[in-house]
């Protein structure tokens, strides 16, 4: 990828879409230091940051595509959230246990599930735990890499509602990477389309259907013509 630039405003939810293999995830991973760009600059609140280091590690949180694999098999759901609270020294040591429980409760992980390890939880429950862990770090930006692709249809709907609620309540800025536009129309206020290693469209969601001009964007619009059904949410991905 060359000459790629993108901005996420405070409290804004931006969707980044493109074909599989277009580099969406690579771009997202660069933001948290999981990949190293050969050149370029990443800024947070106008100041350059080193992704994954120092305060940037806390301020930019990343949600993995596969929530089950992103949670340690050696920690319970509660332990995973505690790890973030302890790691970033959030709150007083005595209050962290109850804070971790509160974060999990807020996201629908009930106390009886909080002691379970990832393999004893469903994909949707693991995603809630991963989300609670990310939120517990009190980030400024949450980067979600294909947050719905590893979930079944009913869990996807729940996850969309969960992310909507989270944004409503926290005003957290989000960058959501997806190969599918359908779920993003429920979440994102702005859409970036990545094609041929370039951002070819940067447009507000409400104008996407009418004003998107690039041929890939038009192809995405065609996937929106149908009513939101299981099929449209489940992924009418754009093939090459």
């Amino acid at each position: 990828m060359r000459n790629i630039g993108l901005t996420v405003g405070q409290g804004e939810v931006v969707g980044l879409i493109g074909r599989s293999g277009a580099g969406k995830s690579t771009l997202a991973r660069c933001l948290v230091g999981l990949e190293k760009p050969s050149t370029g600059d990443i800024r947070l609140n106008g100041a350059s940051i080193v992704p994954g280091k120092g305060t940037a590690r806390r301020q930019l949180q990343y949600l993995w595509q596969d929530p089950v694999q992103s949670l340690s098999p050696y920690l319970s759901a509660h332990g995973a959230v505690m790890e973030a609270l302890n790691g970033f020294s959030i709150g007083s040591p005595n209050s962290r246990k109850s804070s971790a429980s509160a974060y999990l409760n807020d996201l629908g992980v009930t106390p009886d599930m909080q002691g379970r390890r990832p393999h004893a939880l469903s994909g949707g429950q693991c995603q809630r735990v991963a989300l609670a862990r990310a939120i517990a770090a009190d980030p400024q930006v949450l980067i979600l890499d294909e947050p719905l692709s590893a979930l079944d249809f009913s869990t996807r709907v729940q996850a969309i509602e969960l992310l909507q609620k989270l944004h409503r309540e926290t005003g957290l800025a989000m960058l959501i990477v997806s190969h599918d536009l359908a779920p993003l129309r429920h979440l994102a206020s702005r859409i970036l389309v990545l094609d041929d290693a370039q951002i070819v469209e940067d447009i507000r969601m409400e104008h996407f259907a009418e004003r998107a001009a690039h041929k890939l964007s038009r192809a995405y619009v065609r996937t929106l013509t149908a009513e939101p059904t299981a099929d449209s949410i489940d992924g009418n991905s754009i093939s090459d």
Binding site: L34, G52, S70, L71, S72, Y74, E83, N86, A130, R133
Partner: peptide
């Protein structure tokens, strides 16, 4: 290289904790 190891580090775990709690086991 496992996702959960990287995720633990990004979620705030110290390098030492990552090694002893997630890599060694």
């Amino acid at each position: 290289e496992r996702d959960f190891v990287k995720a633990s580090y990004l979620a705030g775990a110290s390098r030492r904790r990552v090694i002893f709690r997630h890599v060694l086991p």
